[in-house]
């Protein structure tokens, strides 16, 4: 289907037809005064368009830093987990990690090391769920199944009682054994 501009010249041709025939040697365009006039206007337009395409307008010098500040702030904001309720109150994963490390430290002979907290895929604003990877160092003589279970119990309890989020997965890794 031919495209028309709905701008029809007195000779019956559409402006778009003249545009398409711009670089062709067309008998009608050469002899028709209406087409010739439009053709000249289109040539001016083509020239100005080429100039516009080569214009060197640069964005403000600080646009990149403004964009990246917004991106980094977004990264920081996304590093939070909703608190139970209307989903509007949030807690940073770093704050959760600090509380969980503190809970693990409460067990004799245990020192929490790294604690990585992420929001679980099934988490919602009304039912926040997290997954935690906690590495601990334990004092040699106290490497007992009981100590290990006690850490797990306290961390789970802290998540639900002190923060109010459900801990769906806790990976507990003994990363170091200290001299007793």
């Amino acid at each position: 289907m031919a495209v028309t501009s709905d701008y029809v010249l007195p000779c019956g041709r559409d402006v778009e037809e003249v545009w398409e025939a711009m670089d062709l040697s067309d008998e009608h365009t050469r002899s028709c005064p209406h087409c010739a006039a439009v053709r000249e206007s289109l040539l001016v337009l083509r020239e100005a368009t080429a100039e516009m395409a080569h214009e060197e307008i640069e964005p403000p010098f600080d646009l990149v830093s403004r964009i990246m500040s917004a991106v980094r702030a977004d990264v920081r904001r996304s590093d939070v987990v909703p608190l139970p309720g209307d989903g509007l109150a949030r807690i940073s994963t770093r704050a959760i990690a600090a509380l969980l490390r503190y809970a693990a430290d409460g067990v004799d002979g245990v020192r929490a090391r790294g604690c990585r907290v992420v929001e679980a895929p099934e988490s919602t604003g009304t039912d926040p769920v997290i997954e935690v990877e906690l590495s601990i160092a334990i004092t040699g003589l106290l490497v007992t199944r009981e100590a290990y279970d006690e850490v797990r119990r306290r961390v789970l309890a802290a998540a639900s009682a002190r923060i109010g989020v459900r801990l769906a997965r806790l990976d507990l890794v003994v990363s170091d054994v200290l001299e007793g």
């Binding site: 495209v3 028309t4 501009s5 709905d6 701008y7 778009e16 206007s41 337009l45 100005a48």
Partner: peptide
């Protein structure tokens, strides 16, 4: 096509 025709007219 319409944009081009309108711009050509102004030019």
């Amino acid at each position: 096509a319409r944009a081009r025709a309108q711009l050509a007219e102004v030019m």
